[in-house]
Amino acid sequence: MNLDVHLHAYGVRRHVGKLAAHSNTILFQYAPEFLDSGINISPFRLPLSPEVKEDPKRTFDGLFGVFNDSLPDGWGLLLLDRALRKKGSSLHACLPLQRLAMVGAHGMGALEYTPAAEQAEEAVSVAELDALAEDSLRILRDAPVDAGQLDKLIQLNGSSAGARPKILVNVADDYRIVPQGAGEPQGTPWIIKFRSAHEPPNTGLTEYAYSLAAREAGLDMPKTHLFPSATSPGYFGVQRFDRVHGQKVHVHTACGLLHASHREPSLTYESLLRLTLLLTKDIREVLKMVRLMVFNVRSGNRDDHSKNFSFLLNKENQWCMAPVYDLTPSEGINGEQTCMVNNKGKDITEKDFLAAAATVDVDARTVREIIQQVDAALAEMKK
């Protein structure tokens, strides 16, 4: 199976190259015209050069991380498995390039894959959120779901990552959900999340509260909203940062950039700070990562794995940190941060923040100011 890869960023669509499956190996080669563009979509693991490339370590079943970032994960994989089971197949039998073909032009970020499997557009309203949330719980529990509702959830999911159920919708300025694909685009693209089977009904309210605290603490948090529900305090929604004025933006996770699996602890905050400095070459972006480090630790968000840190490629082909996401408290493994600070996963103190930040020459005074702002925002939220 062969696929053509395109970068459709800021309204311009460019042919990136070709993916091919060959003898249990996935090969990739850049198109000559894309090499001439100088756009480096994955500078560490897939730098611009003309030869045929493969990943011998097969971190992502042979895919390079930048393409693996396009694939659904967690909830999206569960939906895909249910859909394939209906057709008498299985997720195990669905090869990586087949999954990318299913993503097609509907993935997160700006990469597109052809030939793509056909996908119909689905519309939804606020009034349907409770029904979709209940069907999501049924799928998580492996209970039967109406075929039409399953198809709707699959189409509304796109290729979003993460474990929690979610849908992709367009939202108007007054927070009405507006139909997708009906004439001219209306509203802006948002993600609305539902709770997982093990989470309490107030999960959406909790994530909304922490999104407000993050914004108050100075983090770059997109617009958020608590969508109404008759069965819970509400559903958390957040505006997508991979869409700007109706155009796609290239997004790359730390997981994909470094081939650092998110399924196990694979990064430290020191490595993330060095990555940010090396990739962006901008101390302002490094300070954003310092602030996120402090917020995650102080708020008890221990689910700080490699897919929960992303970077954007702007119109000038410069990298910057993406807005923050997935900022709710979580237990982690044995109560420890997935991403360590100063070689510690718990009992992290100001001294540890200072030591981590010092590895990229961020001074102690700046770090202490960030800690004070984060602590004040979290204290205000808990009043």
Rank of each mutant, 00 (worst) to 15 (best):
N157Y: 07
H225M: 13
P165Q: 08
P144M: 07
R240E: 05
S196P: 09
A163F: 13
G158T: 01
R240I: 06
S196C: 13
D220P: 05
V169M: 06
T224R: 00
G218I: 08
D173W: 10
F227Y: 10
T188Y: 06
T206F: 01
P179Q: 13
G162Q: 02
F194C: 10
K193C: 00
K248A: 13
D135V: 12
K193I: 03
T206I: 09
Q247F: 09
V178C: 11
N202I: 05
A213N: 05
G246A: 04
P201Y: 07
S196G: 15
A143L: 15
T231P: 08
H259I: 00
D146Q: 08
E184D: 15
G187Y: 04
R240N: 04
E216H: 13
L205G: 03
G234W: 01
A254M: 02
A254V: 03
D173G: 14
R138G: 14
G237K: 01
L156G: 01
Q180C: 15
T203Q: 13
P201N: 08
L212T: 10
K248Y: 12
T203F: 07
V244M: 07
H252E: 01
D146R: 09
T206S: 09
A214D: 00
P189T: 08
K193V: 03
I167N: 06
A214L: 02
K166A: 05
H252C: 03
G187A: 11
G181F: 12
S159I: 02
S232D: 07
L153N: 06
T224S: 04
Q186W: 11
E199W: 00
R215Y: 11
G162C: 02
G158M: 03
P144G: 10
S211F: 05
A161I: 15
F194T: 08
P165Y: 00
S229H: 10
H245M: 13
I139F: 06
H259F: 02
F241D: 01
L137D: 06
L137E: 11
V178Q: 11
I154Q: 14
A197E: 14
A133N: 04
I177C: 10
V249S: 01
R195I: 00
L137S: 03
A254P: 04
P233K: 01
L258Q: 05
G218L: 03
T188R: 11
T203H: 08
V145P: 05
I154M: 15
G204D: 01
Y208W: 11
P179F: 11
G187M: 08
L168C: 15
Q186V: 12
A182E: 15
G183F: 12
L168Y: 07
D135L: 13
S232I: 01
G256P: 00
P185T: 09
V249L: 06
R176F: 13
R164H: 06
A163H: 14
P165N: 04
H245K: 14
G158L: 05
G204H: 02
L137P: 07
F227R: 02
P189F: 05
L205M: 11
A197V: 14
D173P: 12
Y175C: 15
K152L: 12
S232L: 02
Q155V: 15
L258M: 04
R138F: 12
A217V: 04
T253C: 03
P179M: 10
Y208E: 04
R215G: 12
D130Q: 05
D146V: 10
L132V: 09
Q149P: 13
I192P: 02
P222L: 04
V238S: 02
P185H: 06
A209P: 04
D130S: 03
F236S: 02
A163E: 15
L168V: 15
P189I: 06
V244G: 04
I191T: 11
